[in-house]
Amino acid sequence: MLLNGVVLAVNYALIALGITLIFSIMNILNFAHGQMFMIGGFVVYYLYGLFGVNYFASLVAVVAVLGVIGWCFEKFFFQRMRKMATREENSMLLAVGTALLLENLALSFFGEKQRGVPPVVSGVFKIGDAFLPAGRLLVMVLALVLIVGLLLFVQYTKLGRALRALAQDREVTYLMGVNVDRIAALGFALGAALAGLAGGLLMTVFGINSGVGTVYSIKAFIMIMIGGAGIVPGAILGAVVLGFAEAIGYALLPGSITYLLIFVGLIVFLLFRPQGLMGKPWG
């Protein structure tokens, strides 16, 4: 149960980091995040599950596909919107629109069926008196590696520095000579790729269907509400809280009660701490 919590937590952290990246750089809540997760899952289903492509190569393809989707979203939708419109609600509506677009495209291309893939690795590890299937362990380790890689990239590379700069002060970043449009598109692509990777990882455990997008978008929102929007440690913390809450809830309670409790808990929590655990108070 706790091990499942860890598996969920690290994968959710990928989701939360992706949406945090996009939010902090663009000030856009990426409503399509769950749909990007879902598409990542389907890329793996088709490449690895149907066509027998190597699993890791399939994950690389996930990055490419979602990277292109994210990049195009920013380039052709959000960037144009920012140049035309001045009101914040416009990009919000646009973000909802992109989610619906992806969801409907997925429904018509992928159908409604629940899809799964054969295990990537077989075997079971016994840790203490708990059992952890090797597949879950693999998913957990990969997610951890990706998280560490992302954090190192953002912290120690020149591009990563530019991403942080853009998140902290857009106008000054223009003055540094940064091609802001390009870096923004890169940030969106990276965030989308993270969502897709989480999908490509978790689908090997839970399978995937074209309806899960909204669920995962909501999970992403919950995590950043718990942690504090736009804050990297907050995203990770939110993921840990949600991952464990889910794992524990599903183990002890009948199915739908868990999320009911999570929502009630979230509302009560937000009443007392609307900025999230690590967020700064507004104003």
Binding site: R161, A162, R164, A165, D169, T173, M176
Partner: peptide, 16 residues
């Protein structure tokens, strides 16, 4: 850049 080290601030100036 408030959440960046002084050094990273300076390096941003040398971006090009």
């Amino acid at each position: 850049y408030p959440f960046m080290s002084v050094k990273d601030n300076l390096l941003m100036g040398a971006y090009l």
